[in-house]
Amino acid sequence: MIPERLIAPLVMGALLAVALWALAVDAPFTITLTTRAAILALAAVGLNIALGIGGLVSFGHAVFFGLGGYAMGILAHHAQSYTTLDLGPLSIAGSKSMPLIWLVAVVTSALAALLIGLLSLRTSGVYFIMITLAFGQMFYYFAISWAAYGGEDGLSIYVRNGFPGLNTLDPIQFFGLCFALLCVALVLHARLRAAPFGLALNAARQVPARVEAVGLSPMRLRLVAFVISGAITGLAGALFADLNRFVSPTMFSWQLSGELIVLIVLGGTGRLMGPVIGACLFVLLEHWLGALTEFWHIWLGVILLGIVLFARGGVVGLLTGKAGPHV
């Protein structure tokens, strides 16, 4: 059994080592795979704050992933076509600068999370799952019908966006960026979990009546968690679009929302490194099993079933021998 505090350095070290090894043996596709894993992990770290700590089973986190993606797509599209983005009285030039795109992605996702949260957090349990799913579908169909930005075909961005001082077209440098952002998100999760907010949010998941009785509003705690969660997933969406240099309505699809939940359950719900382990496993299986059979999701399903039935606490639970952080 591995002590829980060693899991983070081990997993992050392994991810970094694979990328560096791939660089050494000149295997850019493997670097792309590790980048994909890091980005999916970032998206799931975001969801883990709402789902893992707050107990909010959002089946609509693809909304934020997609918004992040389209924030990148729309800004870069206008930049590469030398057109302006007209928002009523405001006319904005496009941008190929990652920091600016990230900022727009984070702010847009946070605002969307605030609105969606205000409406959907009035419900709980199955109703919450359904209403977040419904929001996801709204965005999905909206994106499909939005012809100005490619509709169903999506948007292609010809050149990856830039970051000051880096050559983002170099796979390892882009991986470095994604890896660094993942580290930042993990630190944020760890700090937030140990901070007063994390204590209250975690209690609101377990006993909302008690949290109210000590004078704290579970609804407000959940709303703030949902906004932070959406913002992080939105940032991941912008990176994902940049990785593929392509954004399409599938980023809003309910399958993607489901996959993010699967990553977390696979790795360990509410655990710091759960989403990262889940994402790495997911990308590995997608690559290896996907090479063997088109129907690799069946085997993913079998593994997920095994984890849920026999390993409480996901892979992190298996590694540490503890089903929960305190058990």
Binding site: R191, A195, P196, F197, G198, V214, G215, L216, L221
Partner: peptide, 15 residues
């Protein structure tokens, strides 16, 4: 924490 009325702290540990 409820009595203090200050749960909106996200960075420094509660401990």
């Amino acid at each position: 924490l409820g009595a203090s009325g200050r749960p909106w702290r996200f960075w420094s540990p509660v401990s």
